[in-house]
């Protein structure tokens, strides 16, 4: 099939008008940008989760913030995660393009994230964390590790 023929070599001149170069360039750019944006979406989601989760634990389970502020941190976390969940369901329903890299990473990252968050929830319930003991701060920051790895693997190519 690929015999090295190129447009404009005589026999192929009939195809030259099939795709205008300017339109081809615009279309290629548009498609690459659209697909690139869609395949990076999961990476941005993991990045948001990586930032939001430690803030949630430190903002709601320690006395670093006053009680009304803690309430609003919890609400903000619920709104952000809820919005991301709705967006994820909508994307799935629309059949958005998925990169194999993201589909490979999502499972392990999700399980690691759930495991570390559940551990923190149990520890938070079992111990007094209001004084923000160092182990709790480290644990809260550790909740960001799985999503950060996910974001890095998807966003950095």
């Amino acid at each position: 099939m690929n015999d090295g023929k190129r447009l404009g070599n005589g026999r192929e001149l009939g195809n030259e008008n099939a795709l205008d170069p300017a339109k081809a360039m615009a279309e290629a750019t548009r498609i690459a940008r659209t697909v690139g944006r869609r395949v990076r979406w999961t990476g941005w989601v993991w990045l948001v989760i990586a930032v939001a989760t430690p803030l949630f634990f430190l903002g709601t389970s320690t006395d670093w913030l006053e009680r009304p502020a803690r309430f609003w941190v919890a609400i903000a976390f619920m709104v952000v995660t809820g919005a991301l969940a709705v967006a994820a369901v909508r994307r799935e329903a629309r059949g958005e393009v998925e990169d194999r890299r993201a589909t490979r990473i999502d499972g392990p990252v999700t399980w690691a994230y759930v495991a570390v968050v559940l551990t923190m929830v149990v520890l938070d319930a079992a111990f007094d964390t209001s004084g923000a003991p160092p182990w709790f701060v480290v644990g809260a920051l550790a909740t960001a590790v799985p999503p950060l790895v996910g974001a890095w693997r998807i966003l950095v190519r």
Partner: peptide, 12 residues
């Protein structure tokens, strides 16, 4: 197809 694949590792 080529433009879409150029922006990803692999597409379904």
């Amino acid at each position: 197809v080529m433009a879409a694949l150029s922006a990803a590792e692999a597409l379904d």
